[in-house]
Write a protein that binds this DNA or RNA. Structure first.
Length: 571
RNA sequence: GCGGGAGUAGCUCAGUGGUAGAGCUUCAGCCUUCCAAGCUGAAUGUCGCGGGUUCGAAUCCCGUCUCCCGCUCCA
């Protein structure tokens, strides 16, 4: 979905496109940097859907992606993978705080999708699946894009199947000003037709071959007629298409030559479909019911970008909900489309429940004409990332496509026998598929805020960075801090309190700084409660609990603190 | 893959041919009775990598790698 990344770069219709082109095989001309620079500002002649572009104009002013990236790195939440070797594009590692956060997101999903429900089971299927699975699912055929590049000045890349091939020939340019045709060094061009070629290259000759005011002639190189593709933007010839398969593959078996080439799953869903019948039978499930799964998926994204938004290795939280096609529903039973609707809303509510501002979420219903032939509806839940509205989760009504495909390719009967109607049929599937890393990023962006704090007596201002995470998502739930680090009795009491808390929740102890600094440290990673032990605590056996969001404090008996924290965390 | 930008301390960067620096962070000590205070001290660098020019290279040249941005792609 690139609807949002509108090419807001180019000034609209600045330079008229002079339709210049570089001749094939003149390396010198390709280095015309000045021309390239000018060209880069030319408007693309394929504006992406302008209406959508308008609708998606909204941007966030409260947080930038760079801010989040930098916080994540500084605090060891998430940082580039393989960093000590210079990094590996499209991979990110989660550090101590990030690992907790991600676990919490996954746990929250699992609780609401599996644990709290009576109609969904969890599964955990393999990353490596039989190669036929991807033939059946359509990934082998459809997950491969033929791409080609323009040799013209725009250097743009196109989907080969989006551009028609046309007849073309190679032309030589000759200078005929002085009567006798003199071939111009290196000036050979591919063009669809002589007339067109003349239009295309007029400007180019003059500018780049020093032929201003000269008369030139095009000679078709004999036997060069062929078919080729040309850039709609700059008229340049396109390279032959190269195939980009978006699935990663590996060799299964110890000896590479004789081993089987298998794919790493590009989605977790197919594992669920092929385990469907066994899981259903073992769990003794009737329709409707769902199978949920979390796990890593891999895609050879041509351009992984935007931090953890698009990476080559990523994690998914998917659920396949098998339900009855409408014609088999009895009175009062939800139809497939009603289930689709149910899951759309239910999934959006989940994000709101865990703290995302409702105004930062929206549905994007895929237009009917863009749906796959089997799909009866697809809705994206989009989140207003700092980079704009982008897909966070997709909810798809997949009809009976996947199970039917696997029936056909595997030869197994995956139909469901419905005792109510005494018929066999293939269930419909509703699939809410969420990106775990995208969810983590969304929660981070939505929780992030900066405040200016004024200190009471001196009126000194300082900046406070807070992650206002939902308690369930906060990586660390409570920090125990001694007010004075040079008082062994305070330190001892605080350490003991931290140890008590650690038996029940993820708590930490910290005394390496003045109290204000310790608070800020915890604010930055979203710790909801800080518990401070002061000198009075030794007398009255009470401690101060400081709330992250309000910075308010309250006094609680030390012996009640574990209960207090547990109670507040589950509230 | 193409084009552009960038690689110097954990972070942000300065350093354009002559002994590698600053601020912040981190750590230790002192101090400190609640919101990044102060003082003292310390740690941390194959200047992305390889080659060349030079008496001498972070600096100039060539090559190379990686990251970032744009484009193509993106359940």
């Amino acid at each position: 979905m690139n609807r949002t990344a509108v090419n807001d770069g180019g000034p609209a219709a600045s330079t008229p496109n002079p339709a210049a082109n570089f001749p094939v095989g003149t390396a010198g001309a390709r280095r015309q940097n000045t021309a390239s620079l000018r060209w880069r500002q030319a408007p693309a002649s394929f504006p992406k859907d302008p209406t959508l572009a308008m609708a998606d104009k909204s941007q966030r002013s409260d947080v930038t992606l760079d801010t989040i990236v930098s916080l994540c790195k500084r605090r060891g939440i998430i940082f580039p993978g393989s960093e000590i070797y210079g990094g590996l594009q499209g991979t990110f590692d989660y550090g101590p705080i990030g690992a907790e956060l991600k676990r919490n997101v996954k746990d929250a999903w699992w609780r609401s999708m599996v644990q709290e429900r009576f109609d969904i089971e969890g599964v955990d299927t393999c990353v490596l699946l039989h190669p036929s699975v991807w033939k059946a699912s359509g990934h082998v055929e459809n997950f491969t894009d033929p791409l080609c590049d323009s040799l013209g000045p725009s250097r743009k890349r196109y989907r080969a199947d989006h551009i028609e091939e046309t007849e073309c020939s190679l032309y030589r340019i000759a200078d005929v000003t002085d009567g006798e045709p003199k071939p111009v060094e290196g000036a050979e061009i591919w063009a669809p037709a002589k007339k067109k070629a003349k239009e295309f290259y007029q400007t180019w000759w003059e500018k780049h071959l020093g032929l201003e005011g000269r008369r030139v002639k095009l000679e078709e190189v004999e036997g060069s007629a062929t078919t080729g593709r040309f850039s709609p933007d700059d008229g340049g010839r396109l390279t032959d298409p190269r195939m980009f398969n978006l699935m990663l593959s590996t060799a299964l078996g110890p000896v590479e030559d004789s081993s089987a080439r298998v794919f790493l799953r590009p989605e977790t869903a197919q594992g669920i479909f092929i385990a469907y019948e066994t899981a259903r039978a073992a769990a003794r499930r009737k329709l409707p019911f769902g199978l949920a799964q979390q796990g890593k998926s891999f895609r050879n994204e041509i351009t992984p970008r935007n931090f953890i938004f698009r990476t080559r290795e990523f994690e998914q939280m998917e659920m396949e909900f098998f339900c009855k096609p409408e014609e088999f529903c009895r009175n009062g039973e939800r139809t497939d489309m009603e289930w689709f609707d149910y899951w759309r809303n239910s999934r959006l509510d989940w994000y709101v429940r865990y703290g995302i501002d409702r105004d930062h979420l929206k549905f994007y219903d895929h237009p009917k004409e863009k749906l796959s032939h089997y799909s009866r509806g697809t809705t994206d839940i989009e989140y207003l990332y700092p980079i704009g509205w982008q897909e966070l989760e997709g909810i798809a009504h997949r009809g009976n496509y996947d199970l039917s495909q696997h029936m056909e390719h595997s030869g197994r009967d995956l139909r469901y026998f419905d005792p109510q109607v005494e018929q066999h049929y293939v269930p419909y599937v509703i699939e809410p598929a969420a990106g775990t890393d995208r969810a983590v990023l969304a929660f981070l962006c939505d929780a992030y805020r900066e405040e200016v704090v004024t200190r009471g007596d001196e009126g000194k201002e300082s900046r406070r960075v807070v992650l206002g995470l939902h308690n369930d998502l906060a990586p660390i739930k409570a920090a125990v801090l001694p007010l004075l680090q040079n008082r062994p009795d305070l330190v001892e009491m605080a350490r003991k309190l931290a140890a008590d808390l650690k038996r029940h929740t993820n708590a930490v102890y910290d005394d390496t700084g003045a109290i204000g600094k310790l608070y800020r440290r915890q604010d930055e990673i979203g710790t909801p409660y800080c518990i401070t032990v002061d000198v009075d605590s030794l007398e009255d056996q009470a401690v101060t609990v400081r709330h992250r969001d309000t910075m308010e404090q309250e006094r609680i008996g030390a012996d009640r603190i574990v209960g207090w924290v547990r109670e507040h965390l589950s509230a």
